[in-house]
Every structure is written in C-alpha cells, then in structure tokens.
Design a protein around this nucleic acid. Structure first.
Lengths: 220, 220
DNA sequence: AGCATACCGGAACGTAGAATTCCGTTCTGG
DNA sequence: CCAGAACGGAATTCTACGTTCCGGTATGCT
C-alpha cells in the first residue's frame, strides 16, 4: 500500500489518521448492520486497517458499539425532527419520515445492537428524545386524519424492525425491497385507504432460494 | 423396532425413551425457533434430559436441524394444501392460510435454519412442493380477485419472514403481535381495500424498552 | 540530518463456549 | 440375576474471538 499524498490540505500522517477515523466508523457501521455479532477483526478487514488502528480509537468493542448506537440514535432524531418541523402535506411528511427511517436503517444500529453493551446515560437521554419525537410525528399524522388512529408509535417501531429484518442481496436490493414492503404497509396505514403501485420488482428467480446454500455465510 | 401397540403401557424403559423422543423434538423446536444459533446443550436442558439422550437419536447437531427443518416444511405443506383444497370464500381461505403459516412459524423452522446444514435431496423436494402449493394458493386468490395482483408468491414469503422476525415477550404475546401486523398488511393486500380492527393491544409501556438491558439475553 | 514518537499491521495470548466423546450408573426385560 | 439399552453429565478437543504486544515506518520538529 503506497502512501502518496496528492491533496495538500492535512496531508501526512495526521491526515491519514483522520481519514482512518471515518474509514473505521463506516466499516463498523456496515459490518455490524449486516451482522450484529460480527467479530471486530471483520471491521478492521473491511476498513482495510489493522486491528490496532481500532484499539487506538476505542478501548473495547463495547465502546465502538456504543458509538455506533449513539450515532444511530442521533440519525433517528434528525430524521424525526425533520418530520415534526415540516409544515407540508401531512401524509407526505409522514411518508417521508417512514422512508427516511427505513433508509437510515436506524433499527439495525440501535435496537439490534442493544443488549450487547452497557448503555450510557447519554444513550438513555437520546433514546427518550427519539421516542418523544416519534410520538409527536405520530400524533401529527393522526390529528391530521391521515394515519389510522389504532396504530400507535410503538406499532411503528415494530414495523421499522420488521422492515429492518429484510436482508436480501446487496445493500441496494435490500433497500429496494424494504421500500416495497413499506409501501404495502403504508397502504394499510393510510386514511383513507389507498392503493399505491409497489416500488421495485418482487423477489425474483433464485433470489430467495440462494440462501439455502451454506456458502452464503448468511447470518441472522 | 416398531412400536407394537400405540396404546402400549406408559411404564418401562422403552416408554420413557419414546416419550423422550417427543420431548426432545419439542424442546429443539422451541429452542431453535427462539435462537437458530442456540447450543445443543440448551436443547437438552430444556427437554430435561442429558446430552447423550440427544446423541443417541441424532448423530450430530446438523442432523437434528435437518429433522426440524424437514418437519417445518411438512407443516407448511399441510397448511398450504388446506388452503389450496378449501372451496370456501376465497378471501377467507387465503386469510386463514396466511394466519396458519404465521402461527405455525414455519419461517423460523425453515429459512431461518437454512445455511446451517447441508440440505438433503428430500428437503429440496419438499421445498419445491411447498413453493408449488404456495403458488397455487396465491394464484387462486388473485384469480378470485381478492388479492392485489402486483403481489407475488415471493412477496408473501418475505412477508412471512418479516412477521417471523417479531419476538417480544413470551410466545403468546409474540403470536398476538404477529397477528396484529399481519392484519395491518392484509389490509394493504386485500382487494378491495378494507380496514379491519387490529387484533391484540399494541406494544405497551416498557414492553419495547425492556430489551435494552443486557440481562434479557435477547438474541436474534 | 537526526531522532523521538504517533500510528500502524498483524502475530501472539488467553479464554470462553460449543460439539462431540466417554464412562460409570441405573433400570428393564427375560 | 444378568446383559445391555438408555442415560446423565464430566472430560476432551477445537474453534473463534477480544485484547495485548512487538516491531516497523515515516513524519514533524529541532
């Protein structure tokens, strides 16, 4: 691996380190999103760095997971706040909110990792804030009469988790399928009942069957 | 060695062994349904038997998993065949089919375990048969005009998997919640659009939050 | 130029957990 | 009363993972 600095700003060792910061976080997000029980070595490999590069930044695996979870929570908060603040068409705002959460895959970054580390005080606070915003977004949709009122914010949380459980093919295909089933569910959620065209093709020839071979290394 | 009498005396070594057969299978089903990566010792513990009782019946963990998967497939086939043969109201038959598969939790017993063992020829055959029946049940609903035609059999398979990903509280609560979201999705599936009352209460106070503590040992 | 050192790659270490085997014990059936 | 089926559970073996440690390397400062 050649280290040839072509960009003037922040070149040198410090720059490489700073870049690794991001590289490692991105890799960790991808790896643990795909498999919450993945080994830490998988993160290093994916990031293209050695293990010590990880341990220089985080004292333990738990610390890294906490960081990821915290980031995921903040991402959720950001998306939810957008929905709460947006004064546009109630259904469109709510639908964009649902799609935003599904795309951000915050379920995989938060609930899915929960229980694997000791939560911090800040985590609890952000979690409470996220809940609060979710309730507000929900209430807004219900009061505007675009969301069936027998669906609660907790219901929506579980819907997010169900969609996050979909893992098929690469990330792009997975996102596409999640949108497909989100649309299906939204047709069931909306007031008055609607019928949208489903986005993306359904699972096709062999796409499901492929998972049967052990080769796929497919985990939970 | 065949059982001479189905009503044979329940006492004696043979009877105890026969009872253990069932005990072990039931325990294995429960354990691996809850956690596909569970250790074999957990099955023995749950069944209230020693480990050697397991290995007397199955040469390896893989063999046990194959057995469970095969049983799950046969269960699916049974439920699907009922739907295909039933001449009653098309939507009611189809809805009962969906509920039946969800209750049988065949996704957890089949797809969820796939990839952890080398499939046998029979497994492939049953899998093909199950698919065939699913296609027939699907076609019947579409042709009767009660199922939106842009939803494919593969879509339904993924819907089953999503519902199977729900795990909250005990088995009864989990089943209740799965029905809740199945109903939500069915409202989106049905032609013409409908709006059913959602069965079971939504996730309530603390029901979701409880999963954050590591104590829960919550896997997958 | 020269050197201290931040940063890094990756082998080494210690450990926990899991599948499978092994052995002594119990109880049944003849 | 004995041969042995059936069993409980400890012992064994192996794997995989988190973490630590040991040199290397080149950068930034003097």
């Amino acid at each position: 691996m050649l280290t040839r600095m072509t960009t003037a700003p922040m070149s040198g060792r410090k720059a490489q380190a700073a870049r690794n910061d991001e590289l490692i976080l991105t890799a960790a997000r991808a790896v643990f999103t795909a498999d919450p029980a993945a080994p830490i070595s998988a993160v290093a490999e994916r990031a293209g760095v050695g293990i010590s590069a990880l341990y220089r930044r985080y004292p333990s695996k738990e610390a890294l997971l906490r960081k990821l979870c915290g980031d995921g929570l903040k991402l959720y908060i950001e998306v939810a706040r957008r929905a709460v603040d947006d004064e546009g068409d109630p259904w469109e705002v709510f639908a964009a909110y649902l799609r935003g959460i599904v795309d951000a895959d915050t379920s995989s970054l938060t609930i899915r990792l929960a229980g694997t580390f000791e939560p911090t005080e800040e985590l609890f606070r952000d979690s409470a804030l996220a809940s609060e915003l979710a309730v507000r977004a929900h209430r807004r949709a219900v009061e505007a009469g675009v969301l069936r009122p027998d669906v609660t914010p907790a219901d929506l949380a579980l819907v997010f988790e169900q969609l996050a459980s979909i893992k098929l093919g690469d990330a792009a295909r997975t996102a596409e399928l999640r949108h497909r089933y989100l649309t299906l569910i939204m047709d069931g959620l909306r007031v008055p009942p609607s019928r949208s065209p489903l986005p993306g093709p359904p699972p096709g020839e062999g796409e499901l069957e492929r998972r049967w071979v052990p080769d796929g290394r497919g985990k939970g």
